[in-house]
Nucleic acid binder design. Sequence first.
DNA 1: ATATATCCCTGCGCGC
DNA 2: TGCGCGCAGGGATATA
Length: 276
Amino acid sequence: MPELPEVETVRRGLEPVLLGATFTQVLVRRPNLRRPFPDRLAERLTGRKVTALRRRAKYLLVDLSGGDALLIHLGMSGRMVISPARPNDLDKHDHFVMETDRGPVVRFNDARRFGSVDWIAPGEEAGHALLRDIGPEPLGDGFSPAQFANALAGRIAPIKAVLLDQRYVAGIGNIYACEALHKAAIHPARAAGDLTGAETSRLVEAVKTVLAAAIAAGGSTLRDHQQPNGELGYFQHRFQVYGRSDEACPRCGAGAVIERLVQSGRSSFFCATCQP
DNA sequence: ATATATCCCTGCGCGC
DNA sequence: TGCGCGCAGGGATATA
């Protein structure tokens, strides 16, 4: 499911329920997802109060009293589900269930199990292996044409692959990489280091615009994503190219159709006319 | 160092 | 209706 806009949507949805709440009971229903769960996770979480909910790239960070934090990745199919009380019959993919002193229960459901949960002790965040190499947040000032041009210099990898590489810029996945490249009128196979200054500026602007619009729409729901309150996202209705093979390009209209190309094992959708 | 391939896992839609 | 196939929003690891 989740790229930056979906994770941000989840963060915003959890905030009113979890911020300031204390975990009263935690149920861990399997030993691992992508990686083993932290040792004694349920015991360590019980009695902790949530002091902040943050997002970094596609990670969700749950700050806890005592200075520790939970680092959660939703993988491909992970979702957080809020319910007023613990359901009698849990879904078979509800791997992790957190009850709070305010009543609501939050479940981490992940059918494909590509998600992860890690523990961050006080002071460990900056140097954490999963976080330390991640590039600038795309919606922040740290992601700018000058900075990005510098990062791209000399790269022969396709710009699409670079957008997906979290070391260059944080939080972009396959959908928004395709959409941003279309908006910026750049072919996904262009060598990253060959982009002109104007193209780099357009791409930075397109990334920011597309991500901000997607967040405002509650993310994109293809199959798995839903906001914690159960609402779906609706940015998928605004896709210009993603998943639209053989449809007319909405920008050039004049007969050009969206094409699909496989790059490093993932589909890229683009208009060869608009994106030379 | 940098660029691609492979694998992890379940579920869904499609064509037959 | 059922079955096999291809495909899926991510990313760590291996390999050239």
